[in-house]
Amino acid sequence: MESAFVIETIIKILVVLGLFSALAGFATYVERKVLAFMQRRLGPMHVGPWGLLQVLADGIKLFTKEDFIPQGANRIIFMIAPVITAASAFIAMAAIPMFPEFTIGGYTVRPIISDINVGLLFVLGVMAIGLYGPLLAGMASGNKWSLLGAARTAVQFLSYEVVTGLSVLAPVMIVGSLSLIDFNNYQAGGISNWLVWKQPVAFILFLIAGFAETNRTPFDLLEHEAEVISGYATEYSGMRWGMFFIGEYANMFTIGFLASLIFLGGFNDLGFIPGAIAILLKVFFFIFLFIWARASWPHIRPDQLMWLCWKVLMPIAVINVVITGIVMMF
């Protein structure tokens, strides 16, 4: 039993790692295509049919590119920083139940690497660690743009961590558990049971915070070309640079899963749609939403970002928690 568990876990880890790395790559392709279509363009067309192999070409490019470390950089931290981003993104996935349980050859598989009872806390905590990646990368690069990018990272990620935490507090209060499987089970039984109806404000706050946490437009201030060249990633090249982006796209999936699990009924069957497909659809809707927003909205200024976080979102989140509490009390 013990060894089967270890093997199962290792297989799950490998599947998650491989699958999400590939999905991250694929997401870049999707992003480019969707952005292009929304802008009346075609996007990548040359490599493979409809440019499908562009991802592969980019991968080869990233892997074979020179790994460049600038002279003034702190070598060790510079080299470790992207690993932190990528690793924390993947570690966060450990406590996320991706699909409903299923059986292969009589062996029941639970598609979660580790069902810990503080799952949500773990995911949010590990994702928060991810901020060390850009922060250290920017500080270690020995470059002004990088440093500015790092400073923005610290400010933005820390601030929005507060909103994320407060926004999920209300659903946690309702469900009464931090395990994501409990969240899922709480919403079993159709669309009407989804938490989003009970907590619409929390859902919107969580989504906005999710944009900021994953460094997506309109909150992509960390590496905005027009302002800070490429921010913390200015000095990075090759696969080290690639790891930041694998991290970013993995985080997008994580947020997508979290939002689906907490607010949109998770992997419960949706009418005739089996749960596994349902959650995938939900996650891909969120991914699409990320891209869609990027195509539609301009990004905002750092001061507007902070203003939104501390003066708008956080008060609303607190009020939401209080109201939820009052409602639950009576």
Binding site: V34, F37, M38, Q39, R40, W292, A293, A295, S296, W297
Partner: peptide, 9 residues
């Protein structure tokens, strides 16, 4: 804005 981009797509 979202509508415009979606319609274009």
């Amino acid at each position: 804005g979202l509508k415009i981009t979606l319609m274009e797509m």
